[in-house]
Write a protein that binds this DNA or RNA. Structure first.
Length: 257
DNA sequence: ATGACTGCCTCTGGCAGA
């Protein structure tokens, strides 16, 4: 079983690239973030035509998450992160697929920091930790995947100095991520690449892609049942270099059956 | 270096992104 996460930065603008990626790499489950469309604009038929069934949670203009599965109907278990009834952002979607609970997560960016957006990010991370703990307690094989908007350590960024004031690598953001891992979740990419240097995002600006000025913010967190099955991880970096690409690359984990 | 680019909805410029 192959579980992938991909921040596509607009499903309408990305549709040809996205379908191409699905057909070329054929993930069992693909969790998408930043679909940037309302529910009625989601092109489910386009995915159905290439063998993927999908569920989605959209919003006008920005945010939005989806879960696609190869020949399997994802059974939705949650479509918002508990803990704040006033939070209208479409940033969380969860489903059962092929015996695995999968969450597609679009964690708030938090810039500029300090400020209300950063406060929202940190509060969201605490809510995520609580909800993750409730999933953990159910002992369901679970994968929490998505754009976490956290650079976990200095080894995960091309230049810690250049990013020093960014919300993605503030000590508070990193501590919140570390607390989540401290509860027992396995960061799959980090586990198989302990020396770092793996990027999942390259800015559109300043020739970041051409200079390989990237960082790692798209993560796959596994519960112990899935961590035991961990066979391989990868970043489909080549797709970041294509025409009209997202600023993120797809990231995936291969699990033994 | 107050820089850079892209997508969205459209108050076609302002917001959001990271």
């Amino acid at each position: 079983m192959k579980i992938a996460t991909f921040n596509i930065n607009g499903i309408k603008a990305r549709l040809p690239r996205l379908k191409e990626w699905l057909e070329e790499t054929r993930p069992t489950v693909a969790c998408l973030q930043e679909i940037k469309t309302q529910d009625e604009g989601f092109p489910a038929d386009e995915f159905e035509a290439i063998g993927y069934k999908s569920i989605w949670h959209g919003q006008k203009g920005f945010n939005g998450v989806a879960i696609l599965a190869d020949g399997i109907e994802p059974i939705e278990t949650q479509r918002r992160l508990p803990g704040d009834p006033d939070d209208e952002h479409a940033r969380y979607l969860e489903a059962d697929v092929g015996g695995v609970r999968v969450a597609s997560i679009y964690l708030p960016n938090g810039n500029p920091q300090p400020g209300p957006k950063f406060d929202y990010k940190l509060a969201w991370m605490e809510r995520l930790r609580k909800h993750a703990a409730s999933l953990w307690a159910q002992e369901i094989p679970t994968a929490l995947v998505g754009d976490f908007n956290v650079i976990p350590e200095d080894k995960d960024v091309w230049s810690p100095r250049a990013m020093a004031s960014d919300a993605l690598m503030q000590p508070e953001s990193r501590d919140a991520y570390a607390r989540l891992l401290g509860d027992g979740w396995t960061d799959a990419v980090d586990t198989l690449n302990p020396r770092g240097g793996v990027w999942t995002f390259w800015d559109y600006q300043a020739g970041a892609w051409q200079r390989d000025h990237g960082f790692r913010i798209d993560h796959l967190l596994l519960s112990p049942e899935l961590a035991d099955r961990l066979a391989a991880v990868g970043v489909d970096k080549e797709h970041r270099g294509r025409e009209k690409a997202s600023d993120h690359a797809p990231v995936w984990v291969q699990l033994r059956d």
